[in-house]
Amino acid sequence: MPLKFDLSKCTGCKLCQLACSSSHYEVFNPEKARLKMIHEYNDDGIRIASKSCILCKKCEKVCPVGAITNNGRWMIVDEAKCIGCGTCVDNCPTKIIFLNEKKSTICDLCGGEPQCIEWCPKGVISLKERKGASA
């Protein structure tokens, strides 16, 4: 169940990224979040975009040591196996995987209770139900 975003509601406050970094690392740092919101002015007006794990499982396929698996709802990194080679980072189509202290870091939906959804004040983020799943 990847995250989905209603970008028309996003105001760029970054609370989602703060909730993410604090729940995983006990620090506030938007750069250590496992999702990313862009909300920046530019010459064309304003650019609003999101980056997050789409559960494509490409990282699992390319991992040379089998450190990445999934449970059907989110990706799971076995840190004991991970060698920090960065192959998953290089191959992630949404560029959301990063290495933290030389270990692959991927959204784990906070174990089923995503803190980004909990903290978003505007209801931008929700869980995308799988095709065929009943409501």
């Binding site: 105001t11 609370l15 304003i46």
Partner: peptide, 26 residues
């Protein structure tokens, strides 16, 4: 108004990004 714009860590988002003619501004 084209968009709302919030400050860092703020759920209020008082900012208004507006556009009229060729001019836009928050």
């Amino acid at each position: 108004r084209k968009n709302k714009k919030g400050c860092f860590s703020c759920g209020i988002a008082c900012g208004n990004y507006v556009e009229e003619g060729d001019t836009s501004v928050e």
